[in-house]
Simulated assay, not measured.
Amino acid sequence: GYRRLWAELCKLDYVISENKTQKLCQKLGIQVTCFGHRNRTYKSYKGEIGKIASNLIRRRFKTSIPHQKITTDTTEFKYYEYDSAGIPRIKKLYLNPFLDRYNSEIISYSISKQPTFRPIMEALAQAIEQTKDCPFRRTFHSDQGWAYQMKPYVNTLKDQKIFQSMSRKGNCLDNAIMENFFGILKQEIYYGHTFNSYDELKQTIEDYIEYY
């Protein structure tokens, strides 16, 4: 985008403003076209339907120990499916990743057509298995979404002696690492692209996570 170009020009000692850089990008036809702002974000918060954990992470995102601090969230994608009359219908896909704050690696994830509890538990089980080699007690962080308050989720972490941590209500910055991943993923492969099937979008996400 023009902001990065402007920063590079400044490093090369060019005297130019951000606005001028943006106008030149538009004039030369090199303005970013694959980025768009979300008109609606998926909200998993349904009120206090279970146990709300304390914010143990407190924005201390980084760790020098692999598999010690894990964060998760759910995000929504849209795609199209055509009915028998050839009319496109908007459908939705949900991604539930678990990210290691040591190196921002996605250690497990699930993809589903509905924002249900089972895919989240499947991804949780994989994350627990992947991180069992951690020599210290692990911490799994999330927002206050309904699924993370459910007894099976809470009890699974407790049985594995894993600390549960939650962001404060309405404060996405408490889970900024995961929000940043979602933003990068959607800017790279989703905004500005049209997907005409669940399988096409799912495969694109899987390929990107492998690359990431």
Score class of each variant (00 low, 15 high):
Asp13Ala: 15
Lys69Ser: 03
Ile128Phe: 00
Lys202Cys: 09
Leu185Tyr: 08
Thr204Arg: 15
Leu124Tyr: 04
Tyr80Gln: 08
Glu48Asp: 12
Lys11Cys: 06
Glu188Asp: 15
Gln160Lys: 13
Thr72Asp: 07
Ser197Glu: 02
Asp13Thr: 14
Lys113His: 12
Thr71Arg: 01
Tyr153Ser: 01
Ala176Glu: 00
Gln114Asn: 11
Glu8His: 13
Glu81Gln: 07
Tyr80Gly: 05
Gly86Pro: 08
Lys27Ile: 15
Cys25Arg: 06
Lys186Leu: 06
Pro152Asn: 01
Arg38Phe: 12
Ser165Asp: 01
Tyr80Asp: 06
Lys23Thr: 11
Thr63Tyr: 04
Ser104Trp: 07
Asp133Leu: 12
Thr156Tyr: 02
Met178Lys: 00
Glu76Gln: 13
Ser64Thr: 15
Gln160Phe: 06
Tyr198Leu: 10
Tyr102Met: 02
Thr139Gly: 00
Asn155Lys: 11
Arg4Gly: 15
Lys151Phe: 11
Gln144Thr: 10
Ala147Leu: 14
Asn39Gly: 15
Pro135Leu: 01
Glu179Asp: 02
Glu188His: 07
Thr116Met: 10
His67Ser: 07
Ile189Asp: 08
Tyr109Ala: 08
Tyr212Val: 03
Ile111Val: 09
Tyr109Glu: 08
Ser165Ala: 00
Ile177Asp: 06
Met121Phe: 07
Asp207Leu: 15
His193Lys: 13
Leu185Arg: 04
Tyr190Cys: 12
Leu95Asn: 05
Cys25Leu: 07
Thr116Cys: 05
Lys69Trp: 04
Ser104Ala: 13
Tyr211Ala: 14
Glu48Met: 15
Leu95Lys: 08
Tyr211Ser: 15
